[in-house]
Design a binder for these strands. Sequence first.
DNA 1: CATTAAATGTTAACATTGTCAACATAAAAC
DNA 2: GTTTTATGTTGACAATGTTAACATTTAATG
Lengths: 206, 206
Amino acid sequence: MNNESAKKLSPYHHGNLKEELLQTATDMIDKEGIDSITLRDLTQRLGTSRTAVYRHFASKEALILGVIERGYEQLDLMFTPIFQESTKSVAQRFNAMARAYLDFAIEHPNIYRLLFGDKYHKEREELCDYKDESQATGLYALIGLLVEGQEEGSIAPVNPMVQAAMAWASIHGLASLLIDGHLMMSDNIEAIYEYSIDALLKGLKG
Amino acid sequence: MNNESAKKLSPYHHGNLKEELLQTATDMIDKEGIDSITLRDLTQRLGTSRTAVYRHFASKEALILGVIERGYEQLDLMFTPIFQESTKSVAQRFNAMARAYLDFAIEHPNIYRLLFGDKYHKEREELCDYKDESQATGLYALIGLLVEGQEEGSIAPVNPMVQAAMAWASIHGLASLLIDGHLMMSDNIEAIYEYSIDALLKGLKG
DNA sequence: CATTAAATGTTAACATTGTCAACATAAAAC
DNA sequence: GTTTTATGTTGACAATGTTAACATTTAATG
């Protein structure tokens, strides 16, 4: 049952090192932050030598880019079902998406900063690259949601990429200020959030 | 005329080291980013030994906190006159403030990240600490502007701190996504900005 | 099966960097 | 003029990412 106990007594070959490097690195970054992780610490926890990393990743940066990729996947996995709940209104789904996004940032600030900060950049499609919004995943599905809103008249007929960028920026700004400690009004976070969503929807409505 | 030429041929005492450390560090961070600056590089440019820093700052972090303090002052200096232009409408001043804020972020992305990122924290008053909004400076003056708007009826009568937080987050999010390379739609930046301001003002109006 | 090649892991060593301790020199105080 | 304080220097150290050279296990090949 337990992966740990199944491990042999440190055989020469680890067996699953790449996967465990990614997993443990993710955990460490999540808990301690991107600047605290060291390859020596990481490999020590996995019982390998410090340079074993280099058999699976070209550099520390490459490993971290792998962690980022995982992070995006996790985020996308969280978003996609929300957008597909077509029984709910556009506004409700928009709200649910924003909430989930903010919750992720608050629960995993270090991962969030890694994904949306400037230090490491994992190339991925940009908002403007979208083509078929019906099958878009993650953040790109936001565009599809806005298009749907435009069709039913609850969202103003404006370039949906511009709208998506604005909405994303708005929630991203809130998330960033919060997790980076620039908004201290702990008691008012909920009020700020609700006011933001409200203002956003008003603004998007036109 | 030229400070550089006025310097003696490396006398034992530098004369103005603390000031020049702050200035040069600011320049270096502005150009190369916070992670590129090293004390050795910094001191070498000033012609002193690597450890001279420690006669003026307790640590590298302390020096950087000094740079941050300068940054805030620079930003405040930029904002205060905008808010005091009482001939212009609240909306116009709000717009001017947002534009100046964004321009600063775009022109000095590395400084901006230093001020509003998570890595270093210079304690300063929070939005919620404001008391007399009429004499607030910098970002805090935003609250005063919103109060003024509420009094004349152009801004909805809602807790102005909540409104300020939302507005700040909105523009901060846009600035962050832009300078961190997560919004690539270079041609649409202006459109996104104008749409954001528009939606923000609509949202604030109520 | 035997041999070779590829994959994976280890140890030793290096350059970079922030920092401290000990010492040197200039300026200020008395 | 002597002492104290402020300021600057050199040498050393620990932490860290990385490379080179070597070891071992697994896979491929005949």
